[in-house]
Design a protein around this nucleic acid. Structure first.
Length: 494
RNA sequence: GUCCCCAUCGUCUAGAGGCCUAGGACACCUGGUUUUCAUCCAGGCAACAGGGGUUCGAAACCCCUUGGGGACGCCA
C-alpha cells in the first residue's frame, strides 16, 4: 500500500475555528498512526475574504495545540507550494484540460440572471441549480466572447441522469443522484479556482490518500469524484466526520458559542486539555480512558471508533477536564510558570500597565482595578445597569449594536474601535458617556474602570463578544422578535 | 421545499446478536474526609425515539414512521 497522506485545508477567512482543529486532529492521528504524513494547505482562493492575519492566526493556533504538520507552510515539502494563491498556473493548466475535453464550459450568465433563475425555481418548487443556459452556445460564439474579454466563469458538466455512489470510510455506500448536483463553478470570474476545483487538483497532486473532512461536504462529494474521473485520476478514500454542535444541536457557530481557538487560549485553557477534549468528541480510547495526550491518541487511533452522532461541544466537561489537567499534570513550578506567562505576558502587561498606573495610588490597588483583564467574565446583575437616562432596552441595543460594529471592524486597534463606537453613539444620538456605561459594566463588571475602549482592544474580540453577550443575557436577552427589530434598525443606521 | 447524513442517560460515550437487570465520565443530588471551600472518596438520579420484521434470542441486523442535523453560493 502506498503512503497514507492526509491534510487539513483551512481557509484563512476568520478566527481559527475549533472545528478546524478538530478535523486536523483526526487527520493527523490517522496519518501518523499508519506511519504516514499530515499536510497543511492554505485554501486562500477567496480573494475578498482571505487575510494574512487570519492565516497567521490559524497557523499559530494549530501550533499552540501541538498539531504540527509534516508538509506545508513554514516546513516545505516536495509537493508545494502549499498555498493555493501561489498555485495559479497549476489551476490554469488543469482547467484548460477540462475545457479541451469538453468536461467544462464557459458561462457568461450574470449574477442577476442567476438570482432570478433561483427565485423562479424556488417559487416553482423545482430543484435549484444552473439551467445550462450557456451550454447551448456554439464554440465560435464562445471563442468570440472570451476573446472580447467578456467576464465569465467556468462550470463543470454534470450527467443528467443516474447517480453517484461512493464508499465513505465510516458510513459505507452513499448515493446521490446527479439531478441533485449543480453545474458547479470551477473558475470564478476573477480567474481564481473555487474550493471544489482547487481541492481536487491539489489533493491529487499532493498525493492525498484519505480525505477526512466534515460531514457538511458529503453532498459535494459527487462533484469531486466526477472531477477526478474527468482527469482520469484515482479518487482518494473519503471520510466524513460528524459536525461539532452548539448546545441546541445546530452546527457549532460563533453566534451561539465561542468557536475561536484564541478564545479558549485567552480564557486560560491548557492546549493539552483542549486537544484531549476535541479527541473525545466522537471518539474514545479502546480502554475507555478519558484522559489522553496526542501521542497516546495517535498510538491507539482507529478511525472506526468514531461515532457518527454530532457531538455537542460541552464547555462544562471541557472545564472539568482542564481542571483535571491543572491538578494532575502540572507541578507547582509549572503552574506558576504557565500562569504567569498566560496572565502577564510581556505583550499584555505592557499594554495594561499604562492604564492602571495612572489610576492607582498603591500597588495594592492594582489587583482590584485590573482583575477583569485576567478573570472570567464578570458577575453581573441587572441592578448594576440601573441608569439615570438609559432604559434596560436601550442598553441592550447599545451592547448588541456595539458587538455588530466591533465584529465588522477590518482592523483591530484602539483608533478603529474608538471611531467605530463613537460613530455609533452619534448615530444613536447618545452622549458618549451614557453610551459607554453599559459597555463598562459588561467588560469590567464595574461602572468605573480603565478606558473601556482600550480594554476592549486588549481583551480582543473573542472575549469582548462573550462579555457583551453575557451582559445582554443578564439584561433579559433578546427575543426573536426583538432581534428582528434590532436588525432592521441596525441596517437603517447609515 | 428537494436531497443526503444521523439517532443509547440532560451532555460525551461503551456496546461488532446471548457476557445488558445497558457500563463509564461530565452535570446534578446525598453522605464521608478536610478549620471553610475546592480536591478526593462512597453512593444516588438518569437512556436503547416509536412501530413492524429477521432470529431460539435484538440496544445491536432490515424496513417504515418520527425526531435532529447538514447541503442546495462566482464561501470554504
Amino acid at each position: 500500500m502506498s503512503e497514507i497522506r492526509t491534510r487539513i485545508a483551512p481557509s484563512p477567512t476568520g478566527d481559527p475555528h475549533v472545528g478546524t482543529a478538530y478535523i486536523a486532529l483526526f487527520n493527523r492521528c490517522f496519518a501518523h498512526h499508519h506511519g504516514g504524513k499530515f499536510i497543511l494547505r492554505i485554501e486562500d482562493t477567496d480573494q475578498v475574504r482571505s487575510t494574512d492575519q487570519s492565516e497567521k492566526d490559524i497557523l499559530e493556533a494549530l501550533g499552540w495545540l501541538g498539531l504540527s504538520w509534516d508538509e506545508g507552510p513554514g516546513i516545505g515539502g516536495e509537493y508545494g507550494p502549499y498555498k493555493q494563491s501561489e498555485r495559479g498556473e497549476i489551476y490554469d493548466q488543469h482547467i484548460k484540460q477540462l475545457l479541451d475535453t469538453g468536461s467544462a464550459f464557459p458561462c457568461f450568465c450574470t449574477s442577476h440572471r442567476l438570482d432570478d433563475l433561483r427565485k423562479q425555481q424556488m417559487s416553482d418548487k423545482a430543484a435549484v441549480g444552473y439551467d445550462g443556459h450557456c451550454l447551448q452556445l456554439g464554440p465560435e460564439a464562445v471563442a468570440a466572447r472570451v476573446a472580447a474579454g467578456e467576464e465569465h466563469v467556468i462550470r463543470m458538466k454534470i450527467p443528467k441522469e443516474g447517480e453517484c455512489t461512493f464508499d465513505d470510510m465510516l458510513r459505507g455506500p452513499v448515493s446521490i443522484s446527479w439531478s441533485q448536483v449543480d453545474m458547479q463553478v470551477l473558475i470564478k470570474s476573477d480567474g481564481k479556482p473555487t474550493y471544489h476545483f482547487a481541492n481536487v487538483v491539489d489533493d491529487h497532486l499532493m498525493r492525498i490518500s484519505h480525505v477526512i473532512r466534515g460531514e457538511e461536504w458529503i453532498n459535494s462529494a459527487p462533484k469531486h469524484i466526477l472531477l477526478y474521473q474527468y482527469f482520469g485520476w484515482d479518487v482518494p478514500v473519503l471520510c466524513h466526520m460528524p459536525l461539532l454542535r452548539n448546545p441546541d444541536k445546530s452546527k457549532l457557530s460563533k453566534r451561539k458559542n465561542p468557536t475561536s481557538i484564541g478564545y479558549y487560549q485567552a480564557m486560560g485553557y491548557l492546549p493539552e486539555a483542549m486537544l484531549n477534549y476535541l479527541g473525545m468528541m466522537g471518539w474514545t480510547m479502546p480502554t475507555g480512558e478519558e484522559m489522553f495526550n496526542l501521542q497516546e491518541m495517535t498510538h491507539s487511533f482507529d478511525i472506526n471508533r468514531v461515532s457518527l452522532g454530532g457531538p455537542i461541544f460541552d464547555i462544562q466537561k471541557l472545564d472539568w477536564l482542564n481542571g483535571k489537567y491543572i491538578r494532575e499534570s502540572l507541578d507547582d513550578q509549572q503552574f506558576a510558570k504557565l500562569f504567569a506567562e498566560w496572565a502577564f505576558s510581556a505583550d499584555k502587561i505592557q499594554r495594561i500597565v499604562p492604564l492602571l498606573k495612572q489610576r492607582v495610588e498603591r500597588f495594592c490597588d492594582v489587583a482590584e482595578l485590573g482583575s477583569f483583564f485576567i478573570s472570567a467574565n464578570p458577575t453581573l446583575s441587572i441592578e448594576l445597569f440601573e441608569h439615570k437616562v438609559l432604559t434596560i432596552e436601550a442598553q441592550i441595543k447599545i451592547l448588541q449594536f456595539s458587538l455588530w460594529h466591533l465584529e465588522a471592524l477590518e482592523v483591530w486597534n484602539r483608533e478603529f474601535i474608538e471611531s467605530s463606537l463613537q460613530g455609533l453613539a452619534g448615530q444613536l444620538d447618545l452622549k458618549i458617556r451614557d453610551f459607554l456605561s453599559p459597555l463598562f459594566l459588561a467588560i469590567s463588571g464595574k461602572a468605573v474602570s480603565t478606558s473601556v475602549i482600550e480594554s476592549i482592544d486588549i481583551l480582543k474580540l473573542d472575549i469582548t463578544r462573550a462579555r457583551l453577550r453575557a451582559a445582554i443575557d443578564v439584561l433579559g436577552g433578546i427575543s426573536k422578535k426583538m432581534a428582528k427589530n434590532l436588525e432592521r434598525e441596525y441596517r437603517s443606521l447609515d
